[in-house]
Amino acid sequence: MESILQAWEDFARTIEPPALTMDDAELRDHARQMLLAIASDLGTPQSTQESTNKSKGLGKRGPDDTAAETHAEARLLSGYTVVQLVSEYRALRASVLTLWAADIGEARAAHIIDVTRFNEAIDQALAESVGRYEYMVRQSQNMFLAILGHDLRNPLGTVVTGSSFMMQAIDIPPRYILVATRMFNSAKRMSKLINDLIDFTRTHLGHGIPIRVKQSSIVAVCEEVVNELRTYHPEQLIDLHVPPHLDAIFDDSRIAQVLSNLIGNAIQYGNREVPVTVRVTSTEADIVIAVNNRGKAIAPDRIVSVFDPMVRIAANVNSDSIERTSLGIGLYISREIVHAHGGKVKLVSNEDDGTTFTLTMPSMPKGFQGASDTASGG
């Protein structure tokens, strides 16, 4: 048992990035139960038809979840892909057969039968794992689309209608017209979020998020986004620290989308008694924007999945968590937009300093030739 588990653990540790945040127990999870079930199966008489069914992953099962099914859920929530999940079974099969061959020496008929039955049991466990993994992914996708329609379209319609009505009024003070204009502009940006689903799909097809860069003011973009969010969240203080002037070559609408997502996330999960801080600095080659909130720190084992909406939704499919009403796609799209600019987003979270998302991108994208407008894929 120990030799097999160690080989399983050694292989699982090579699967990155999930394995980087998992301890020995998590890497070995459910392997022991599966091996014990397989050993028990080897000692149980079976008919030819039962053998055929198991080789197709259609073996008999009890009313409770099998170790393979539970293992599939755990691996999905740890960030494994289905290909990585299947690779673990390939490694388990190879490890056991290698150790088995070394132990029995010259093969005999009884051993060949046992090897055949072992392979049937592995196929059954693999079928159970992939089936449960596919089910969890499908459930999270269905929830994803349902929340999209509910959370974006209805509130967006109300904001657009209300702000448009106020903008056309002639019997209210100008300052209210200004507020209505900002609301209307924010609503237009919200409508672009519907396109995030298209962006999300595009990134998974390998095309990346398209950007159109030009010389613009980082300061102006930050001030615009912060003012909009101050209007929308008057109860939350937002401190903005920017230099007097700071220009760069970037897609201003896309970076505004990133800032809106990062600051909105900070407001949602921050402490209302402490300001959200947005700080813009620069180096010789890079623009650095840090967004900090002093809310509850993110657990270390959850940091790896913060940018993955499917993992976050799957983790809450069977719960009443508030995260069920949030797509969580904003952080993923933000990261992909920054990557398209040749930059990166770093997350640090602890009880002392709070949670800080730091966006770093080059002030001059690689390959930019000085044209007024260009398109690029991430």
Rank of each mutant, 00 (worst) to 15 (best):
F368W: 13
H241F: 12
T283E: 00
D352Y: 09
E284V: 07
N119M: 12
T98H: 13
P173Y: 08
N271C: 08
L237D: 13
S334T: 02
V258S: 05
M1K: 15
A340H: 03
D239R: 13
A248W: 00
A19P: 01
H204R: 13
N318D: 07
G79D: 00
I287Q: 06
V278L: 10
V242M: 04
A68L: 01
M310H: 03
G270I: 02
M167C: 14
E73M: 08
I289S: 03
P174Q: 11
R230H: 11
D23I: 02
T203G: 04
E235I: 13
I209L: 13
T355W: 00
V159A: 15
V291R: 04
L76N: 00
I122W: 02
G370D: 01
E69S: 06
D373L: 15
E223T: 07
L77C: 05
R202H: 09
E9F: 05
V86N: 01
G270Q: 01
V278P: 01
H30F: 09
R132E: 02
A299C: 08
D29G: 07
P173V: 10
P234C: 07
D123E: 14
G105M: 07
M34C: 11
I4Y: 14
V83W: 07
G295E: 00
G149I: 02
D373A: 14
V225K: 03
E223N: 09
E50A: 11
L205I: 04
G342M: 01
A146R: 14
H245L: 07
I249H: 06
R312N: 01
L36V: 13
Y232F: 15
R32G: 09
T201G: 08
Y80A: 00
T281V: 06
I255T: 11
V159G: 10
N318R: 08
K60R: 09
M34D: 01
S326I: 12
A25C: 06
Q268N: 12
S47C: 05
K296E: 08
L259A: 09
G354Q: 02
S282M: 05
H204K: 08
E273D: 11
Y80L: 01
D151M: 10
W8F: 15
P234D: 04
L77R: 02
